[in-house]
Design a protein around this nucleic acid. Structure first.
Length: 646
DNA sequence: GCGGATCAC
DNA sequence: TATGGTGATCCGC
């Protein structure tokens, strides 16, 4: 295929994509075009760039399909009639509007950067950033140059050569974060954290009790935070969480914005607002909506007929509620039992040797065990994630009949999931466990059962948080939460309890919420180029339909006699020696470990060792072999090329 | 139940 | 000179 020299081949959408997701957040630099050009220039030709280019192309094609759908849908229909119908729907939605609660969204200004400032005041007024290879937060001075969170440091340096790059100090951020949350809980003990630097309050009861106006109260909150931490915070005041969040951005930094609590003002406010500002609308959905003429929330109304006809892809109700500025106002603290998964992953310079990958996998498994242990979880499904050196991401999962949280088993399942993919070159590997069981839940079991039904009733009916006032049942719930606080140990990632899902604002009860589902499987190419595991597995073991046909070629061909076992239902190909084995997964793993250790020894000693096919014992042998591996210095394998899809 | 995709922080 | 980590959700199989 021809390679149109990349120069001048840059589409607007690609340039914008390369600029990253956080452009258009705050502090628009003057010359965003020039900045984007520099970023694109610096990215050009990299693997990352190529991957972004492909994603951009896929999205463009997806848009073309959507437009075709739309054209077919509107053909010969009476749009005016549909509009009238939607208008009735809007009236229904409007009747749901609840203006009774005063919700505040607070957002710490350039949080990491300002905490660094506390520890080194000489940074004041200088452009600096926090983070490692990728920037977490940029000071406002740095933002003027176009430096953004999520941007790789080397590009940031191009944009701002004087940029000072600081390493992260998570302990510091956690410490300040805890201080801030502690202050804010004085105003609403049911504070809902959304990360370590932002969250929601329902200050309605507090206002009543102290006879305060919302603005006064929020000014006082911000003043107090600043007085006690020297950090500045911005805030939005509105009748629901979505609006409050949008408002907190209005007068950032160190400001607040109060949206009037009346329907007309709110709809006008939303009218001019870029749809991208709506929580849940990211870059992809922004482009999809733009393609049908929706750039602002007000455009939702203009195009309501088309959106109605394409409800399946766009989610009409969600968009109408957005247009109306209607969303949830139920502020509640995170509860342990809401957790769905726990995982660990790591990025590194691309690896392709099996041993190197297993070393990384083992590290990740150890980290995950540690996290699961300290936070008290176990689970039944293990998901392996890996990112090719092409930046394509894949996951492979396996559900078990028992609970896992130990490193050895996490590692073993990870290996099992990884091996069938093997000839690959990866830059990231991760493990995640789902279908969790709470190992710390036992004590509160009785309490939970007692209050369980009441909670259900409350959430089932759409409870207007108006009964948040003073009540007694909340006290007992608070007790449970305090238990939770206890087990949030200041581990590496303190985020733990801070993982409320912001997209829930909109979800509320009804709502199909997923705005624009992607089209049916955009053919993903499984990464592995080896056909080997063509042979059958236990039913549930993956048998992905590969782009290439049911490759019976390679693996089967090599099928040396090996063990003469009978049951063909369980055969595997060793990714190291390519031998086909009749054995179960455990046996395969043992064999592989053995092969690896043999390779390692040979490579290190330059001697050839006789292979013993019948593996002796299990665990001890494995342990020993792996330990041996770690001590030996191995010649790095020649990178196996992982081929890219055409 | 699995895998991809999108999103948020 | 090499583009992060954690967690959630939804959809289509």
């Amino acid at each position: 295929m021809d390679h149109p020299v990349a120069s001048s081949q840059l589409t607007d959408s690609l340039v914008k994509r390369l600029a990253g997701p956080s452009t258009g957040k705050a502090g628009l630099a003057k010359d965003q075009t020039e900045i984007n050009r520099i970023i694109a220039e610096a990215s050009k030709g990299s693997k990352f760039y190529e991957n972004e280019k492909k994603k951009d192309k896929d999205l463009t094609e997806r848009i073309a399909r959507i437009l075709k759908l739309r054209d077919e849908a509107i053909e010969g229909v009476d749009l005016a009639k549909i509009e009238h119908h939607v208008d009735k729907l809007i009236v229904d939605l409007e009747s749901e509007r609840d203006l009774s609660q005063v919700i505040v969204h607070f957002d710490m200004d350039a949080f990491f950067a300002n905490v660094e400032l506390l520890h080194d005041p000489t940074l004041k007024g200088k452009p600096f950033s926090v983070g490692g290879g990728v920037i977490s937060t940029a000071s406002y001075e740095a933002r003027k140059y176009g430096v953004r969170s999520g941007m790789p440091s080397f590009i940031a340096k191009k944009l701002c050569p004087e940029l000072i790059l600081l390493r992260s100090h998570y302990e510091w951020y956690n410490e300040e974060s805890n201080k801030v949350f502690t202050i804010l809980r004085r105003y609403d003990p049911r504070l809902s954290a959304a990360g370590c630097d932002e969250g929601y309050l329902n200050i309605t009861p507090y206002l009543r009790k102290h006879n305060l106006a919302p603005d006064e109260c929020v000014e006082e909150i911000r003043r107090t935070v600043h007085a006690e931490t020297s950090l500045t915070v911005s805030a939005g005041i509105a009748p629901n969480m979505m609006l409050a969040k949008i408002c907190s951005d209005k007068n950032k930094p160190n400001g607040q914005f109060h949206l009037a609590f009346d329907s007309k003002t709110i709809v006008e406010f939303m009218g001019d607002l870029s749809i991208r500002k709506v929580p849940g609308i990211g870059r992809v959905n922004e482009r999809l909506l733009e393609s049908v003429g929706v750039k602002t929330c007000g455009d939702v109304y203009t195009h309501r007929a088309v959106l109605y006809l394409m409800d399946k892809q766009f989610g009409l109700r969600f968009l109408l509620r957005t247009y109306l500025g209607i969303a949830s106002n139920e502020v509640k603290p995170y509860e342990r039992n809401e957790r769905k998964s726990i995982g660990a992953e790591r990025t590194f310079s691309p690896l392709s040797s099996t041993k190197d990958m297993l070393d990384k996998l083992e590290e990740v498994a150890a980290e995950l065990e540690s996290d699961m242990e300290s936070s008290g979880w176990t689970g039944r499904t293990v998901t392996l994630k890996f990112k090719l050196d092409t930046f394509q991401i894949f996951t492979r999962a396996k559900s078990l009949n028992h609970w896992v949280n130990k490193k050895e088993e996490l590692f073993a399942v990870g290996k099992e999931l990884l091996f069938p993919e093997l000839p690959i070159s990866i830059r990231l590997i991760g493990l995640r466990v789902t279908k969790l069981k709470d190992l710390k839940a036992s004590t509160s079991e009785g309490i939970k059962r007692f209050f369980g039904p009441a909670q259900q009733a409350a959430s089932g009916g759409k409870r207007k948080a108006s009964d948040v006032d003073d009540d007694d049942e909340d006290a007992s719930i608070d007790q449970e939460e305090q238990e939770n606080d206890d087990d949030v140990m200041p581990g590496f990632h303190e985020q733990d309890e801070a993982d409320i899902d912001p997209s829930q604002h909109d979800v509320d009860d009804d709502e199909g919420l997923q705005i624009i589902p992607p089209p049916a499987n955009t053919r993903k190419r499984p990464p592995n180029s080896v056909p080997d595991k063509s042979i059958s597995h236990p039913p549930t073991l993956r048998s992905r339909s590969k782009s290439a046909g049911p490759s019976r070629s390679h693996g089967a061909a090599i099928a040396g006699p090996s063990a003469t076992s009978s049951t063909p239902s369980e055969t595997h190909t060793c990714p190291v020696c390519n031998e086909v084995l009749s054995t179960n997964n455990t046996g395969l793993n043992e064999h592989i470990d053995y092969c690896l250790s043999r390779d390692a020894i040979q490579q290190a000693q330059g001697t050839s060792t006789k292979v013993n096919k019948t593996l002796s014992s299990g665990d001890t042998t494995k342990e020993y072999a792996m330990n041996g591996l770690k001590r030996l210095k191995l010649r790095p394998d020649a990178p196996a090329k992982s081929k890219r899809k055409g």
